[in-house]
Amino acid sequence: MIMYALAAVLFGVGLYGLLVKRHLLKKVLGLLILEHAVNLFLVEVGYIEGGTPPIRIEGADAAAFVSNAVDPVPQALVLTSIVIGLGLAMLMVALTLRIYERYGSLDANRMSELKG
C-alpha cells in the first residue's frame, strides 16, 4: 500500500512541477517524474510479495513457478513505456535547447509569441 502511495506522491510532484514552475527545464523534469510515477504504478501492479523473477530455470517445478513468479506483463509494458518516455524526453530537451537558443531564457513567461 505504501508503494502505491509513493507512486501517487510522485505523480503529484510531477504534476506540480509541470503546472506551477515557470522554468522550462523544471517543467520537463516534472513531466518525466509524472511519467515514471505511472511506470512505478504499473510495476507495482505485477509485484508479488516474496515472488520469484519470471524466468524459468532448467528443471524447476512448473506449478510452483507459475504461482510464485512475478507477473512479467507489466514489466514488458513498463519497458515499452520507458522507451517511449526516452524518445519524448529527447524531443523535449531538443525543443528546450531550441527555445533557449532563440530567447536566451528558459522562463515560460518570456515566451510571448503565443498569447490567446
Binding site: 509541470l18 524531443l91 523535449m92 528546450t96 527555445i99 532563440r102 515566451m111 503565443l114
Partner: peptide, 12 residues
C-alpha cells in the same frame, strides 16, 4: 520561435 513554442505546449 512560434512553432517551437506551440510544439512545446502541445508536447507538455
Amino acid at each position: 520561435g512560434r512553432e517551437i513554442e506551440a510544439a512545446f505546449k502541445y508536447l507538455m
